[in-house]
Design a protein around this nucleic acid. Structure first.
Lengths: 200, 200
DNA sequence: CGCGGTAGGTAGACTGGCCTACCTACTTAC
DNA sequence: GTAAGTAGGTAGGCCAGTCTACCTACCGCG
């Protein structure tokens, strides 16, 4: 029932929502949530302020959409890496590769680590956005746990512990990579992970 | 040559600087750097705004002092844990315990992970404060590397790799603990670390 | 001992700028 | 004609930082 199933070819009638989301993603990632003003987003998107409030009810709503889009984007990267990784060990490493891809996206200019974690750092303790980031990280860990269970079918609790271990490794290396400004930490974490699941 | 070597007993003449630093630490940790206003800090410190600018040249200067104080605070916690830990393995675990202590400080109300990492998440890519956080994390890793070298004197590169491994584990578990809102992740990371250095 | 200067505190007004959010008025695609 | 875009203004609030005006503890000195 959606009247517009394909993107309109006319540039005059381009969907403002996507331009806004793309611009918001760049500004939020680079300057932080609180450090980014509405005007700078609309200016970068080349869009009127009214269009922002036509598509989003508030800045907080735009932040929510940003977090959701970033989650989806990561899933996309992971799915791309998962193709061709059939063995459980390769699927574990595919998660690490997806993280590196995610880093590579922003790497060209001012890599600052995981956008979701950075956003969560700005949100107060009980904030729904913070909960969304928590769920994302738990989902990534669950993904790892699924693959690790394939490697250790005989002992589920050892598998769960290893999955946590890998998840911490992944998260910590991403945080450090953001501070260092390059993805060397991520490559090293992948190597360490390969060692952990290699000698099973 | 300092004319006042002991704290003045008179409450009228209490040092505003310390009250400001303590209040800033609470507000910055709970609400973020950009999310915290000058007025809320002076109000919580029970101090005039003038006193803030008597003691600090700007809000950025106060942020710098906050980051430095947090670094020193962690060092203090680590030193307390290091006493009585003579074996290298125990010293490695003392670092993990110091992190848990650090978490416990803020745990009572609204634990939000590592204050230094959260602050760095708000700072732009080349910011001096961000560099300070990077140096702090590198210092922690160097500490771990020193202890691990005591465990693996025969192979320095394996020791360096293990130190990184432990550093990532530490950082990642702290990040996850902040999202989850409790220190269960930290306790699990300590257990995993003990396993890593136990079977050497 | 008393007295005045100084250093560092208090309260609060104020400026200029940026923030979110809403608004009007016009334009264009379907 | 309508829906959705454009440009840009405006209201009202919060921000950092400065300023005036006053107050009080301490110190040296006569």
């Amino acid at each position: 029932m959606t009247p517009r199933q394909d993107a309109p070819a006319n540039p005059r009638r381009r969907p403002a929502r996507e331009a806004l989301l793309a611009a918001a993603a760049r500004r939020f990632y680079a300057d932080g949530l609180a450090g980014t003003g509405i005007d700078s987003i609309t200016a970068e998107a080349g869009v009127a302020k009214k269009s922002l409030y036509n598509n989003f009810s508030s800045k907080a709503d735009l932040v929510t959409a940003y977090l959701h889009a970033r989650h989806e984007e990561w899933l996309e990267l992971y799915r791309a890496r998962e193709e061709g990784a059939s063995a459980p060990a390769d699927r574990v490493l595919a998660v690490f590769d997806a993280y590196a891809d995610h880093a590579g996206f922003a790497y060209e200019r001012g890599f600052r680590g995981c956008g979701l974690l950075n956003a969560a750092a700005e949100l107060p303790a009980g904030d729904p956005g913070r909960e969304a980031v928590r769920r994302h990280k738990e989902e990534v860990e669950a993904l790892l746990a699924g693959h690790v269970t394939g490697l250790l079918p005989q002992s589920p609790e050892r598998a769960a512990s290893l999955a946590r271990h890998l998840a911490f490794l992944l998260e910590g290396s991403m945080a450090r990579a953001g501070l260092e400004g390059d993805d060397a930490c991520l490559r090293e974490a992948r190597r360490i992970a390969a060692g952990l699941i290699g000698d099973l």
